[in-house]
Design a protein around this nucleic acid. Sequence first.
DNA 1: ACGATATGTAACTAGATTAGTTACAGATTG
DNA 2: CAATCTGTAACTAATCTAGTTACATATCGT
Lengths: 138, 138
Amino acid sequence: MNTRFAVATHVLSLLAHLRPEAVDSEHIAGSVGTNPVVIRRLLPLLSKAGLIRVQMGAGGGAHLARLPEEITLLDIYQAISDDFGRFGIHDTPNPACPVGRKVAKVLSAEMRGAEQALAEQLRGRTLADLAVEFQTAD
Amino acid sequence: MNTRFAVATHVLSLLAHLRPEAVDSEHIAGSVGTNPVVIRRLLPLLSKAGLIRVQMGAGGGAHLARLPEEITLLDIYQAISDDFGRFGIHDTPNPACPVGRKVAKVLSAEMRGAEQALAEQLRGRTLADLAVEFQTAD
DNA sequence: ACGATATGTAACTAGATTAGTTACAGATTG
DNA sequence: CAATCTGTAACTAATCTAGTTACATATCGT
């Protein structure tokens, strides 16, 4: 299973919690429960998306580049998704069949619609919304 | 990549196209461009979901159990999704961390919301809608 | 300048998942 | 009873993910 979205959201929630302090990959990994290298492979993706800033060297680490209310779950989803889409389409349909000839075009349109609905939901939730959830009683 | 949703939708669109004729797995596989066994592994899932009826033996095959306008893409999506979820959650967060302690609960709620938005979009599209797309000019 | 510290990244391993394939038992038809 | 078709087991190859070790590079503080 792909846990990158969960780990990325965990990391950013942690950075929001400790803001504006810079946190190193070992500390983050301790909270996530994984290896620091797994975190260090994730940080460049979040950095390129403009969600965090990372500093190398002694005293370095990662911190949020924006306010928690300005980072949506869609930002995170897009940052860790290479291109887009978790729906795959089979690649060798039969062009001699009326269905096979157009299935790629028809299905990709449907999948775009589905991804769009997913994206709109994620766009409506921010790290600040999640922070409230983290603070409620168990 | 997971192409089961695409293949399942292809199969059902083909059965809608050839309705009410029963189609065997070899014929279906010829349209999809795969091995008949791949299709035969899919048919029981669609059958259990009540989308098709399958008959063994000579002259057998699969045919739609409902009208195309009564089969939604959500029906298909749920039929082929073992339990649920395109999102995975990492399994060993640190319970000593305020974020790690609640991350599974908070994230699963967000993921449910995202899946729900996806489901609502898929619920609004039927095999009959797709049939129109298959019939438009190239 | 230098030593300590932290990221970025390559390389490798193990495990899970997917699709494809062969083979065959069981069901159904005529 | 012979032909046909599904259901399913077993195996392979390819791909993906996470975890791990190792190290080059960058940065800070003294």
